[in-house]
Every structure is written in C-alpha cells, then in structure tokens.
C-alpha cells in the first residue's frame, strides 16, 4: 500500500509538472509562432523561451526521483 502511494505521488509530481509545462509552452508557442511569422530572425530567442517552462517538469522529476529513491 505504501509503495502504491509513493508511485502515485511520483506520477503526480511528474504528470502535473508536465501539464503545467505544456500549458505554458502552448501559450509561448502560439505567441512565438506569430512573432516568427513577422520576424523570422527571432527564431533562436523564441526556441529558448519555449525551453524555459521545462524547469517545472524537471523539478517535478527531481521530486519524483526523491520520492521513489528515498524509500
């Protein structure tokens, strides 16, 4: 039972983080696509901005690793 809760906790940590990242990236992506259509030279900057919210899922991953490996 304990293991089950740990697995669920780890899955929530990564899953919710991934959903949050996805939501943020969808907004940045749509705004970025519009920006690149007008100014293609900003592609690099937009790609970088797309990568910024991934920290959220990475932090979720760290929490999941701590939950799974800690026990």
């Amino acid at each position: 039972m304990d293991d089950g809760w740990r697995f669920i906790g780890a899955a929530l940590a990564v899953g919710l983080g991934a959903i949050g990242t996805g939501l943020a990236q969808s907004r940045i992506g749509s705004a970025g696509a519009g920006t690149i259509a007008e100014k293609p030279e900003l592609l690099g900057g937009i790609l970088l901005m797309m990568a910024l919210p991934e920290t959220v899922v990475i932090l979720g991953f760290v929490v999941a690793a701590m939950v799974l490996l800690g026990g």
């Binding site: 920290t55 990475i58 932090l59 991953f61 760290v62």
Partner: peptide, 12 residues
C-alpha cells in the same frame, strides 16, 4: 537554488 535544481535536466 532553483537554478541549481534546473541542472537535473542534464540527467533527465
């Protein structure tokens, strides 16, 4: 500290 944790992506 957030910055340091961000390096976990190297492994992930």
């Amino acid at each position: 500290f957030g910055n340091v944790l961000s390096y976990a992506r190297l492994m992930a």
